[in-house]
Simulated scan of single mutants.
Amino acid sequence: MLKIENLHATVDGKQILNGVNLTIPAGEVHAIMGPNGSGKSTLSYVLAGRDGYEVTEGSVTFGDVDLLAMEPEERAVAGVFLAFQAPVELPGVGNANFLRTALNAVRRAKGEGEIDAMQFLKLARARMKVLNMSDDMLKRPVNVGFSGGEKKRNEMLQMALLSPRLALLDETDSGLDIDALKLVSDTVNSLRGPDFSALVITHYQRLLNHIVPDAVHVLSGGRIIKSGGPELAQELEKSGYGAIQAAAA
């Protein structure tokens, strides 16, 4: 599904990624953990195509295409979804209109017909019921006045509606209480299957109790310094990053 080779990237002229190598097979969920400033969010932004993040070396293959050669909107309709650590507010943009426009853009790219407002509302309300979201959230501007938990639920609603092939979850668990964490995890788990992969970026092992990853990777200094199974997250929770960083130095 995703193959990253020797990826280097800069932000504002500062080198952040220093040779990331990572392969995520189709149908697998991988987790990335690491200390603050290690490049975790930068990696997700580079994969999504965010402006200001310059790739200076390396390659990223998504399926059989060169991901780095695609514009951000092309990546989105191809099935790449980014859930932000801090979802942005879009004043004046209605949530329902935003979500239906995004969904229809993806459907057009797949050669499927667009859905009308009534069809969208039926679909959205079914997804929102699972996420414990009120219908009122569709009437409000995107994320404006939403609590932290509501913003993360809205991100999961987007993901559930768009059904991406690759989900990049950038610390989606940040600021969530236990109930909201379980709802977010249930959304990810409901999408798991042979045509869905995910890269889950987190500081905390608690999220990985709910979204059990196929592999865990430690990112430090802009490169992956250790990989393992779910037990690696438990080791990090207990002992921190010091020993692993020392061994990789």
Results as ranks from 00 to 15, higher is better:
residue 47 L to D: 00
residue 48 A to Q: 05
residue 51 D to P: 14
residue 51 D to T: 15
residue 54 E to Q: 15
residue 54 E to P: 10
residue 59 S to E: 07
residue 60 V to S: 01
residue 62 F to K: 00
residue 62 F to R: 01
residue 63 G to S: 10
residue 63 G to V: 11
residue 64 D to K: 13
residue 66 D to Q: 11
residue 67 L to C: 07
residue 71 E to H: 14
residue 72 P to I: 06
residue 73 E to L: 12
residue 75 R to F: 03
residue 76 A to N: 03
residue 76 A to F: 09
residue 78 A to V: 13
residue 78 A to P: 02
residue 81 F to Q: 00
residue 86 A to D: 14
residue 87 P to L: 07
residue 89 E to C: 09
residue 89 E to S: 12
residue 91 P to A: 12
residue 93 V to P: 09
residue 94 G to I: 05
residue 97 N to C: 10
residue 98 F to P: 01
residue 100 R to P: 02
residue 100 R to G: 01
residue 103 L to I: 07
residue 103 L to A: 03
residue 104 N to S: 09
residue 104 N to I: 04
residue 107 R to H: 10
residue 107 R to A: 09
residue 108 R to G: 14
residue 109 A to F: 05
residue 110 K to E: 14
residue 111 G to M: 04
residue 112 E to N: 12
residue 112 E to C: 11
residue 114 E to W: 05
residue 119 Q to C: 10
residue 119 Q to R: 15
residue 119 Q to A: 15
residue 120 F to I: 00
residue 121 L to S: 13
residue 121 L to N: 15
residue 121 L to P: 05
residue 123 L to W: 14
residue 123 L to H: 10
residue 124 A to L: 03
residue 124 A to V: 01
residue 125 R to V: 06
residue 127 R to K: 15
residue 127 R to T: 08
residue 130 V to C: 08
residue 130 V to S: 08
residue 131 L to S: 07
residue 131 L to T: 02
residue 132 N to H: 13
residue 133 M to N: 07
residue 137 M to S: 07
residue 139 K to P: 05
residue 140 R to G: 02
residue 140 R to Q: 08
residue 142 V to S: 00
residue 144 V to G: 10
residue 144 V to Y: 06
residue 146 F to I: 04
residue 148 G to I: 03
residue 150 E to V: 03
residue 150 E to R: 01
residue 151 K to D: 07
residue 153 R to A: 04
residue 154 N to K: 05
residue 155 E to W: 04
residue 155 E to A: 03
residue 157 L to F: 08
residue 157 L to P: 01
residue 157 L to H: 02
residue 158 Q to Y: 06
residue 159 M to K: 00
residue 163 S to E: 14
residue 165 R to W: 09
